[in-house]
Design a protein around this nucleic acid. Structure first.
Length: 106
DNA sequence: AAAATGACGGTGT
DNA sequence: TACACCGCCATTT
């Protein structure tokens, strides 16, 4: 039982391929509300089924790892590296690993 | 119905 | 580069 907004967030995050990442702001922008980055984080923090919604592939606007309900930043960092996303100083290189969505429209 | 919360983001110091 | 502030928003209290 999700709200419309939350459902959109999950739908989009579910499309992020392994090895790539997106920022909370990116998700918000795709949804159509570029100022709701914070709300996106809220939705993800409540996400339980990490298998369907790879929320570990969502990072801060500067590439910093923000949080992960299932094991914290550490686990999040490991998961990304396992997928081939290099992490330096606790940050991912957005220039290289950023996911460019196929202009989804909501 | 009203106030508080948090996995953000941009700006200023 | 790091940190403190402040504005934003959907969701939760």
């Amino acid at each position: 039982v999700y709200t419309s907004f939350t459902a959109k967030v999950y739908a989009i995050v579910a499309q992020i391929p392994a090895g790539k990442v997106a920022t909370y702001g990116d998700i918000a922008q795709i949804i159509g509300n570029p100022l709701a980055a914070r709300a996106v984080g809220m939705a993800l923090s409540r996400n339980l089924n990490t298998h369907q919604v790879p929320c570990h592939r969502v990072v801060g606007s500067d590439g910093s790892l923000r949080g992960y309900a299932f094991g914290g930043i550490l686990a999040k960092s490991r998961l990304l590296q396992q997928e081939g996303v290099p992490i330096r100083n606790g940050k991912v290189d957005l220039k290289k690993s950023r996911w460019h969505s196929a202009a989804n429209v909501y």
